[in-house]
Design a protein around this nucleic acid. Sequence first.
DNA 1: CTACGACTTAAAGTGCGCTTGAAGTCAAGC
DNA 2: GCTTGACTTCAAGCGCACTTTAAGTCGTAG
Lengths: 137, 137
Amino acid sequence: MSDMTIGALARIASLAPSAVRYYESQGLLPKPARRGGQRRYSSQDLGRLRIIQLALAAGFTVAETRTFLTGFSATVAPAARWRALAKRKLAELDEQMERCSRMKKLLESNFHCKCPSLANCERGFAGERNVEGSPCS
Amino acid sequence: MSDMTIGALARIASLAPSAVRYYESQGLLPKPARRGGQRRYSSQDLGRLRIIQLALAAGFTVAETRTFLTGFSATVAPAARWRALAKRKLAELDEQMERCSRMKKLLESNFHCKCPSLANCERGFAGERNVEGSPCS
DNA sequence: CTACGACTTAAAGTGCGCTTGAAGTCAAGC
DNA sequence: GCTTGACTTCAAGCGCACTTTAAGTCGTAG
């Protein structure tokens, strides 16, 4: 599992080698050991990469992700700032899940009627009455 | 509620007038009536705008959102295609909620220990052992 | 009449998260 | 020795969702 090239690591994580280099350039991944000028990665690096992928997929920016991975090294109270950011992001994640849930409901409410679009049939959307001409059953 | 200018509509929806014009240019909003050359919006337009905002916030692209709003007008089986896309997006929304949930757990697991970063303290992350030197309690 | 603020257009610019291109290096196989 | 393929760097390019800029129009108040 250890001592992977960037190509091998990228294949396992299902992303492009260029993305891995980009993460390194942005301080998300540490500068790895090299052999013959080429980067070599361990399974620990893979673990870290998976955290990065999860964070980015969950909507974190590269800067936020870096902060969570590396902390606030330059401040007087790094842990306190970390917790403050974490708290904010936890709230944002809740909001995002709520939005996804609402969008799901909107889609589902239209899925089982005859309307081929949300524009004609808006039943299920908060407070909206059916638009005239909607083929809603 | 009806007969709003673009500025009024944008203020209510908490976005920039330029964003509303952009949505119109992308076919998300219909071309509104005009008075003295200026766009006038109804509360129905506001309803549609709120759907757009929800869809985009939930991770839909502009093109996907347009499809859900306007349907597939040029195909032989619009409703069938609409349903196929809706089904795919419902699955994607589930995945996104799952990712958010996993990220929340990762953040929470680190929130209550002494680590000021995820890099040092990775407890709670699937399969990961504590990194040596981690101040994890 | 003039000044003001909010609107209009089309085109160019921005920020983010990468990707691509060009030119070069390295190790293995024939 | 030479080719091959995967790697290297750095800079430029891309797609998306807007935003900004420049120059102009409209309706109201003074």
